Simulated scan of single mutants.
Amino acid sequence: MRDDEGSATMAGAGLVAAAALLLSALAMGGALVVRQAQAQSAADLAALAGAQALWESSSAPCAVAVTVGEANGTNVDSCEVDGDDVQVLVRMDTGVPMVPTVAKHARAGPRECA
């Protein structure tokens, strides 16, 4: 029986390491889901602000969209005015090593009345 001394310690250490790895993976997945939602909200808001600026003709819609996107912690990669619509593509850092950024697209403009 002296040959088995410490084997339970190694098994316990392995279980603790496996639990820590699983919890880390869950935390990274949760952080990624939250960042994706934040990026989509920022893209929606930037597109809406750009469409409102286009509607009011008060300023350049893409400049407004970039300002709103950056104020919400994103980088606006592209902004296009397509008729009465404003389309934006934003990118946000995630803080997750395997997926460093997420990109989201949004479009805003008037809807045709039926």
Rank of each mutant, 00 (worst) to 15 (best):
E70L: 06
A71H: 13
A63P: 07
D44P: 07
P97D: 11
L45D: 05
V88Y: 08
G50P: 00
S59G: 09
A49S: 09
A71D: 13
C62R: 01
T74L: 10
W55T: 09
A51F: 01
A49P: 04
C62K: 01
G69P: 05
A60N: 02
V76K: 02
M98C: 13
A47V: 00
W55I: 10
V88F: 08
V66H: 05
G73D: 11
D44Q: 02
E56F: 11
Q87F: 13
W55E: 14
D93W: 12
G95A: 10
V88N: 03
A63W: 02
T94V: 14
V96T: 08
V68E: 04
G73Y: 09
G83N: 05
T74D: 10
V76R: 02
M98T: 11
G95S: 10
D84P: 12
G95L: 09
V68G: 02
R91A: 12
A51N: 00
V64T: 06
T74G: 10
P97A: 13
A47C: 01
A63H: 07
Q87N: 14
A51V: 00
L89K: 14
A51H: 00
L89I: 13
L45H: 04
Q52H: 09
G69I: 02
V90N: 14
V96C: 09
L48P: 03
E70D: 08
T74Y: 09
L54S: 04
A46V: 01
T67L: 10
D82M: 14
V99D: 10
A65M: 07
V88K: 05
Q87T: 15
D44R: 05
P97M: 13
P61Q: 01
D84Y: 13
A71L: 15
N75H: 15
L89R: 14
A53W: 01
D93G: 14
M98R: 11
T74P: 09
T67S: 11
V81R: 10
A51I: 00
V81N: 03
D77A: 13
T74K: 11
A47H: 00
T67A: 12
M92E: 10
T67Q: 12
N72W: 04
V64H: 03
V76C: 05
G83F: 07
P61Y: 01
P61F: 00
G95E: 10
A71S: 14
C62S: 02
G50S: 01
V88G: 06
N72V: 08
V64Y: 02
D44K: 05
V81T: 09
C79H: 04
V76N: 02
S58Y: 06
W55G: 12
S58F: 08
S58W: 09
D85W: 10
D82R: 15
S57M: 13
A53I: 01
